[in-house]
Nucleic acid binder design. Structure first.
Length: 879
RNA sequence: GGGCGCUUAGCUCAGUUGGUUAGAGCGUCUGGUUUACACCCAGAAGGUCAGUGGUUCGACUCCACUAGCGCCCACCA
């Protein structure tokens, strides 16, 4: 057909238009077809804060591949997008913006502050939506959700109240991780650790000398702990001592506890039950008094005398001065340890005792046959029993370990932004009830009727734990929920396996008695070329996906993130890699351009049928295509996206372009096959590179979009093994001649003579005479079954085929002799190995039959080649 | 301290249940305006598969140990 297509595909020129076309046609929204099992992915909701980063890009690329593949198989496929309110992260972002204007959240008050957050979030969500579109994600926007939506909020309240009524949620005074900057609790796994070199202070402590990094906590000490078997202190266990301190003497008790390491420091530890997790546990075991001295702003409390209102840091300095004056400091040394910090703002964590809401992870609350399981036991069993499969498997162990060691989950946060805890406190007596709305009844205890809602909000992971079902309308029994849950695949980064994936499993199995998804696919972190984490603090290491999309096109960015990466392993990305896949996209573009130029209008409209297959080249490419279709389908079903992509890449570039299209340039054009292969290749590729394939599809004048077409299936009528093999031989022959030409430095423009004794392949080669002559650049070709050995010619062997190139003048005899001898040596070594193998009784007895046969065939073939080499060498000697 | 993983060509990585004369892309070298594509074409060089030992007829692949690198969990004051 006459065609007017640019010679370079300019992605940015088409992508937005194509996306709009898809979105407008409604194909992202699946139809509920009750006789078919749907394919469902809940998109991991990006935080409603910043911008799209490469982690999102990987997630979107992989999930879009799965969704498009399943959709093209006729499966109702739902990909539900949304955003997460990300309480602490978002609140911090807005606080930062306010602080630039010299304001803080208290200046605005809760209500006004939340209005600011909403404004910020709305804007941020718009940005994210557009970025998701830029990646080509074919998700169902009509079902988009936000964790703070009305429906999702209702789900959150419903779950809270049910868990509360089941006694799974309780309120208690417990030691918690407290971030004084965020002024909120954090869950155990929201604490990070940073290695830091500080000081270790050796203090005189009554009858003891002991080492501490936190001298300021001495004000909250109520005991000294030693190892129960430590001879040095054995006699002191159970006794009480008065300890001189900066605020006067105070009493401590000595306890024996195995948590103490006698090797560390002096073997004696001061115990501050209210501000250390270990000490809290020791105090619980020994019934020690608790004395809180640090408040929620990280300041010393009123009971700290002159130190009151100092921050812990200020207090440390002051108290050390005072201790020094009292002669209580014996020694100071450098000490490297891990400091706990907040994962959201990096501030030092202060453990302190506070009244918070917790989920009891050990209460036997789920019926499982006759037994009752705790939520963590249930969450372990669904993986162990294989109800949920994690890819790659290695994460099973990590998951089990984490789950087995899970402590009660602190779910209350002192953050303004989020789901308010649905609990109401009686203003008169502090009694409380769980309710979605303000209770209209009187307090059971004091008959008061004034209620105040709990000021705290819920951990953001509480709501995201419900994501797979809250987004489908639960607790209403909606059609969506009934049809689409459990979802099929949860695809996300391994870094949020605990934060999110584990929580979804807990929530879903408990609330619905149903798994949230059948398969978990975990991708790795995107790193730079040196394997470094890309961080905002080092902008030179950061690659901005949007900038790359602008420069190289979305399809290239997607390929660079998918090909060459495997589940659970980190992905190294660098610009050259993206450029490489851009080159591939251009290659596809040009291959299609060429094919289209050679397909007449009539052929374009005609349906393909096997009768249109003509030459052995046709049969070869069709055979390889069927193999490709088989492999790609298998790989995609097995989540081997990289393998599938690589196979398609190799087929298009290495087979279709380098050989089939090149052969087509001669006398062998077959528009029907050109079209058929192109069509199938575009379909195979579509999940990976949706934009360029859709654009090229449009040139083929189809009535349907490629996104709605059917994914290729193997057609057994189009497999022609014998002919395909002949073409492989022809490729080999051409390759050898080209190789000799290059080696002998025959000018590319010079045509040469060739004599080929092709044995049983003579007819096959004859049928491709024109191709061989053109691609090997021959001016004459003598093709026979057999013939006399030819002297003074360069000889090459392919299978049983002898190729003679009379290039006497160009042969460097010395070099040629070396080359032949080297090859002879190599060949005879190889033959020796084969013989050894075949003479080995163990091999003959144990190896599979077909392997033995193929090794025998190899030996025969190699022997024949060796003989021919011997002849060549002899001929050479004569000259 | 506990656990997990990685180590294959100069670089980035494939190599699915053990059977290939160990592959790709980038880079390098040689040569090219060949009816789409220089974001291209043709050809070439380059690896004792980290080391040692074991299992096996056969090990890049399985096991053990060693070395180097990385990650996760715990958190000892």
């Amino acid at each position: 057909m006459s065609i007017n297509i640019d010679s370079n595909y300019q992605a940015s020129k088409y992508e937005d238009k194509i996306y709009k076309l898809w979105e407008d046609c409604g194909c992202f929204t699946p139809k509920i077809e009750k006789d078919k099992e749907p394919f469902v992915i809940s998109m991991p909701p990006p935080n409603a804060t910043g911008v799209l980063h490469l982690g999102h890009a990987v997630m979107l690329a992989l999930e879009d591949i799965m969704i498009r593949y399943n959709r093209m198989q006729g499966t109702p496929s739902l990909w539900l997008p949304g955003t997460d309110h990300a309480s602490i992260a978002t609140q911090n972002k807005v606080e930062q913006i306010l602080s630039k204007e010299g304001k803080n959240k208290y200046d605005l008050g809760r209500r006004e502050f939340l209005k600011e957050v909403d404004k910020y979030v709305k804007n941020s969500q718009d940005i994210i939506r557009n970025q998701i579109r830029k990646m080509g994600a074919s998700c169902d926007w009509t079902r988009e959700r936000f964790t703070l939506d009305k429906g999702l909020t209702n789900a959150v309240q419903e779950v809270f109240i049910r868990m509360y009524k089941d006694g799974l949620i309780y309120r208690g005074d417990r030691i918690v991780n407290w971030c004084p900057r965020c002024e909120s609790t954090l869950a155990d796994d929201e604490v990070e650790y940073k290695e830091l070199t500080e000081k270790l202070y050796w203090l005189k402590y009554g009858p003891f000398t002991l080492a501490t990094t936190r001298p300021e906590t001495k004000l909250g000490d109520t005991a000294v702990a030693v190892h129960p078997d430590d001879k040095r202190y054995k006699d002191m266990i159970g006794k009480k001592f008065m300890i001189p301190g900066v605020l006067g003497d105070f009493e401590i008790k000595v306890v024996g506890d195995t948590a103490v390491d006698p090797e560390f420091g002096s073997g004696a530890v001061k115990v501050t039950p209210s501000h250390s997790f270990t000490d809290y546990e020791i105090a619980k075991r020994h019934n020690l008094p608790f004395k809180s001295i640090i408040n929620e702003k990280g300041q010393m409390m009123e009971n700290c005398g002159k130190y009151a209102e100092m921050t812990t840091k200020e207090c440390r300095k002051a108290i050390l001065d005072d201790m020094d004056k009292m002669g209580l400091i014996e020694n100071i040394e450098d000490y490297t340890h891990n400091l706990s910090i907040c994962y959201r703002c990096g501030h030092t964590i202060e453990p302190l005792i506070s009244a918070q809401w917790f989920i009891d992870v050990n209460k036997k609350a789920i019926k499982d046959g006759r037994k009752k399981l705790s939520i963590k036991e249930k969450a372990i069993s669904v993986i162990r029993e294989g109800d949920i499969k994690i890819i790659p498997k290695k994460f099973n162990k990590i998951y089990f370990h984490w789950m087995e060691n899970l402590h009660d989950w602190c779910i209350s946060r002192q953050i303004w932004y989020g789901h308010r805890i649905p609990v109401w406190h009686c203003k008169d007596c502090n009694e409380f009830v769980a309710s979605k709305t303000k209770p209209n009844k009187k307090c059971k205890k004091c008959k008061g009727s004034k209620w105040k809602q709990d000021p705290d909000t819920l951990d953001t992971w509480f709501s995201s734990g419900l994501w797979t079902f809250s987004t489908l309308g639960w607790p209403e029994k909606t059609e969506d929920y009934k049809y689409f849950h459990p979802t099929s695949v949860m695809e996300t980064g391994y870094d949020i396996l605990f934060f999110w994936v584990a929580r979804m499993i807990i929530m879903s199995t408990y609330i619905l008695n149903e798994i949230p998804f059948k398969t978990v696919y975990l991708h790795g972190l995107v790193r730079d070329k040196n394997g470094q984490k890309m961080s905002k603090s080092k902008p030179e290491t950061c690659i901005d996906p949007l900038e790359m999309i602008e420069k190289y096109g979305t399809d290239a960015v997607r390929l660079s993130l998918v090909i060459g990466s495997s589940p659970g392993n980190d992905i190294r990305l660098y610009e050259e890699k993206i450029a490489g896949y851009r080159n591939f996209v251009t290659k596809i573009w040009n291959a299609s351009r060429f094919a289209l130029m050679n397909i007449d209008e009539e052929s374009l409209d005609k349906e393909f049928e096997p009768g249109m297959v003509k030459s052995i080249a046709d049969k070869w490419i069709l055979t390889r295509l069927q193999e490709l279709i088989k492999k790609v389908n298998k790989d995609l079903k097995n989540y081997r996206f990289s393998d599938a992509g690589t196979s398609i890449y190799e087929f298009i570039w290495g087979m279709y372009c380098d050989w089939y299209l090149e052969i087509s340039k001669g006398e062998h054009k077959n528009p029907a096959v050109l079209k058929y292969v192109l069509e199938n290749v575009l379909k195979l590729l579509h999940p990976f590179t949706p934009f360029v394939t859709e654009k090229l599809w449009s040139f083929m004048k189809k009535d349907k979009l490629i996104i709605n077409s059917t994914y290729p299936k193997v057609d057994k009528n189009l497999i022609f093994e014998d002919e395909a093999n002949i073409l492989e031989i022809i490729k080999e022959v051409i390759g050898r001649i080209r190789s000799i030409r290059a080696e002998l430095k025959v000018e590319p423009s010079k045509l040469i003579h060739a004599i080929i004794y092709a044995d049983k392949y003579v007819d096959g080669l004859e049928s491709k005479r024109e191709t061989i002559m053109r691609l090997a650049r021959l001016e004459s070709l003598e093709l026979k079954e057999k013939g006399p050995k030819i002297k003074n010619a360069k000889v090459e062997l392919v299978d049983k085929i002898e190729i003679y190139l009379p290039l006497k003048d160009m042969i460097d005899y010395k070099k040629e002799k070396n080359r032949l001898e080297k090859e002879y040596k190599q060949k005879s070594d190889y033959i020796q190995n084969l013989k050894k193998k075949l003479n080995n009784k163990g091999f003959i007895d144990n190896a599979p039959k077909d392997l033995i046969e193929s090794e025998k065939a190899k030996l025969e073939c190699e022997n024949e080649k060796l003989n021919k080499l011997k002849f060549q060498l002899k001929e050479l000697e004569k000259l």
